[in-house]
C-alpha cells in the first residue's frame, strides 16, 4: 500500500498542477489568437464588403497565415469533422503542408476548421481539399473561400 501511495500522490499532484498550467497556457494562447483575429478582421473590413468579415471571422490568423495573406495568397477555411485532438491537427498540417499550392496551414481545434492560404495565383479545388482531408483521416463538411466572397 505504501508503494501505491508513494506513486499515486505524486501522480495526483502532477495532474492538478499540469491541468492548471495547461489551462493557463490555453487561455494565454487564445488571448493572442483573439488579438490576431481582431487585427485581421479590421484590416479586411476596411478593404472589402461586410460579407467578407464573416469569412475573416472564420479564419484563425496565426503569424504564418498572416504572412501568407500579406504575400497575396487566397484563403480557404474548411469545416472539418472529427478533429478532436492534436494528432488530428498534426496529420492535417503534414498532409496539406506538403502541397506546393499551400503557403500556410493551421488547424484550429476550437473552431474545428482547417485554415489554408495558397501561394499567390495557386489554389486547390474543393474536391482536392476533401481528398487530402481523407488522406489525413478526416472529412470536410464545408469549404469557405475568401476570393469567392470578395466577388459577390
Amino acid at each position: 500500500m505504501n508503494t501505491i501511495t508513494s506513486f499515486l500522490i505524486p501522480l495526483l499532484l502532477l495532474a492538478a498542477s499540469t491541468a492548471a498550467w495547461g489551462q493557463h497556457e490555453h487561455e494565454h494562447q487564445h488571448e493572442h489568437q483573439h488579438e490576431h483575429k481582431q487585427t485581421h478582421a479590421a484590416t479586411d473590413a476596411t478593404a472589402v464588403t461586410g460579407e467578407n468579415i464573416s469569412f475573416t471571422d472564420r479564419l484563425t490568423a496565426t503569424p504564418e497565415i498572416e504572412a501568407a495573406l500579406a504575400n497575396g495568397g487566397n484563403a480557404v477555411v474548411a469545416d472539418v469533422l472529427g478533429v478532436v485532438c492534436d494528432f488530428c491537427a498534426v496529420a492535417m498540417n503534414k498532409v496539406f503542408g506538403k502541397q506546393e499550392e499551400v503557403a500556410a496551414v493551421y488547424v484550429d481545434l476550437d473552431t474545428k476548421a482547417l485554415n489554408l492560404v495558397f501561394m499567390p495565383g495557386a489554389t486547390l479545388t474543393d474536391e482536392a481539399i476533401a481528398s487530402l482531408a481523407v488522406q489525413a483521416g478526416y472529412r470536410i463538411a464545408a469549404v469557405h473561400r475568401s476570393d469567392a466572397v470578395v466577388t459577390h
Binding site: Q23, H26, A89, D108, D110
Partner: peptide, 10 residues
C-alpha cells in the same frame, strides 16, 4: 479543459 492546437492537453 479543452486544449486548442499546440496547447498542452491533459
Amino acid at each position: 479543459y479543452e486544449g486548442d492546437t499546440r496547447d498542452l492537453h491533459t
